[in-house]
Design a protein around this nucleic acid. Structure first.
Lengths: 226, 226
DNA sequence: GTCTATAGGAGGATAGAC
DNA sequence: GTCTATCCTCCTATAGAC
């Protein structure tokens, strides 16, 4: 039954509250009682709507994943419609832009979601959620990166993607560390600041490792092509 | 009193067990009982030796931080002794090499420590531990990066460092995601593989953002110098 | 330094009334 | 769909014997 004031159902309010609290203190750092109190619903509602605390986490995680996946693919397809070889920086941009856009204008729910994602991505216990929800689309991006870097060893592309996603998730973790470190010169919340730097940084990184033919003898002559 | 078999004191065994378990399941995902059982000591020992569970985490975190800091500074000083301007890739290398070396040859304790570091770095609740234990040395690295990139806007350097540390921590999280993603083509445990790619990737990224004078008009002509 | 025992509460989950 | 009441496990922390 929707709440009179907010118009949101108990189930949605549970998802919202869980998202916010899991993001701030982690899955184990939050109790069902914390969540239901914040959501203004009864403790038994988690059991009723989701079955368990763990299933609630899964539901929180899945809720926004599909929207990201869909837009990532749309943007990737759009870059393909350009002429000629895929542009590396454009591929990176179509991967990150759906996130940055929601970070900047998606409201608090999306911000919490990304902070949660950062924790999940860095935790062995929960990383399987990343695999299940995002890897199908990530594989398409890896392919696109490979097309944009036809001479690169596939392992270089995987490692580059790994570096990229690490940088991306820390950016969204909103831990405030960059702010403290830079004496407030940089703000984690400055989405334009990240936007301007992220894709150029990563594209240049990919290009640099692709040039080194790792795995071949270090002193071997570079390929003539390129 | 040291254990007869291992020769390690109860306090050390508590630190070891806590490190391993915190790394795997997070601070809140582990109980004092889990830790003392794994360490083979009595539950009351955490209180006796550390005072509280939280203080045990702090002790675990601090134990290895200083060793990293010392070696990072030593390596940084060594690169300064070279002639001329600081080399960007060498600066990056002196920052990461102490980690990679221990990842490859430091044993399970160090591996756990790095995985814990990954979780701490991405959690708003604990990120203050990073600030307290690592930022003094990180500031010196930021300065060094700035010297290696004299034309760069300081904000570019901070953001670049942020991307670098994000990539670094995910690499050490050992979540197994890269392995699954690449169909076991890449292994998170392949320290030579990371080593060969990390510094070139990051150095190229830094150089690329430094070239774009963010904050100035996008269409402004590039500086003549460089 | 180490262990027993226990305080005192918070944890996830659910049966059953409404 | 929602709430009350409760089960029973697990938690952190400590007092006090040895």
């Amino acid at each position: 039954m929707p709440n009179r004031k907010t118009g949101r159902s108990a189930k949605d309010r549970l998802l919202d509250a869980a998202e916010r609290l899991f993001a701030k203190r982690g899955y184990h750092g939050v109790s069902i009682r914390d969540i239901t109190e914040a959501a203004g619903v009864d403790v038994a509602m988690v059991s009723y709507h989701f079955g368990s605390k763990r299933a609630l986490l899964t539901a929180v995680f899945e809720r926004r994943a599909e929207e990201i996946n869909v837009e990532r693919l749309e943007r990737l397809e759009a870059t393909r419609r350009g002429r000629g070889r895929l542009d590396l920086e454009q591929v990176v941009n179509s991967f990150m832009e759906p996130l940055f856009e929601r970070m900047a204008r998606g409201g608090r729910g999306w911000k919490s979601y990304f902070a949660l994602l950062a924790q999940v991505n860095n935790s062995p216990e929960f990383a399987v959620l990343m695999t299940r929800n995002f890897d199908p689309v990530v594989h398409k991006f890896i392919e696109a990166l490979q097309s944009a870097l036809p001479d690169a060893d596939p392992r270089d592309v995987y490692w580059g993607y790994h570096f990229l996603t690490g940088a991306l998730t820390l950016t969204f973790a909103e831990t405030g560390r960059l702010d403290r470190l830079s004496g407030q010169l940089c703000r984690s919340t400055d989405s334009d600041g990240v936007r301007a730097r992220f894709a150029p940084f990563m594209a240049a990184g990919f290009a640099a490792v692709a040039r080194r033919r790792v795995g071949e003898a270090a002193a071997a002559p570079r390929r003539a092509r390129r």
